[in-house]
Write a protein that binds this DNA or RNA. Sequence first.
DNA 1: AATATTCATCGTATATTTACGATGAACGAT
DNA 2: ATCGTTCATCGTAAATATACGATGAATATT
Lengths: 105, 105
Amino acid sequence: MALSKKEEFTQEDIWLADVAKALSHPARIRILKILTEMDYCMVGSIVDQLPLAQATVSQHLKELKRVGLIDGEIDGPKICYCVNNKNLAKAKAALDKMFSKIGCC
Amino acid sequence: MALSKKEEFTQEDIWLADVAKALSHPARIRILKILTEMDYCMVGSIVDQLPLAQATVSQHLKELKRVGLIDGEIDGPKICYCVNNKNLAKAKAALDKMFSKIGCC
DNA sequence: AATATTCATCGTATATTTACGATGAACGAT
DNA sequence: ATCGTTCATCGTAAATATACGATGAATATT
């Protein structure tokens, strides 16, 4: 595209779209579900549950981390990932708000 | 990418990711908000409220329609767009479910 | 019928995403 | 110190998304 126009929207809309983008791949949906179900999880365990190479999973984790939906902590040679409840709640609230209106056609 | 692996996930995860993808651009967030606030809206009116060309807005509308979040009805030479409440509710429920879990790190 | 309006689609350029193998950094164990 | 394990990052190829002007189809108006 010639030039992205994303910056010309409100901060709220840009942020919400960014969160949605982080959720826009089934692998990342799966990862988020795994983390909400297990509280925390090593990368290796996540890789085992996905049909993707380790490098690819790492990229997906990076994307979820970028928008703050998950956190990663170093635990020896491993990394412990978990959901960030504060940001998850914030995203949920924003989506709820948008979805709460009712219209008719 | 050599080959998309999206098909190797569950239908639920693929669908939810697809809905998120439809929401992954500030223009489409804005459009959805406009439609939930106005019940229905002609394309021209939406174009006036966005910093994008008509062709681009049309593409964004198509994407929202593709996943069923909005509907478009012909009204003379114009098209009346509105949100699809059934699918919006379905998406809200699926996201709520995913966001409802609590973990700790 | 000719014209204007409204919007989708086509064609196209550029940017971004997705995927993987290879490599490297950090740590624990021997 | 060397080695194995764990994971991020680099490099790269192919797919997809974003943006717009131009064109076309459908309708309403004159």
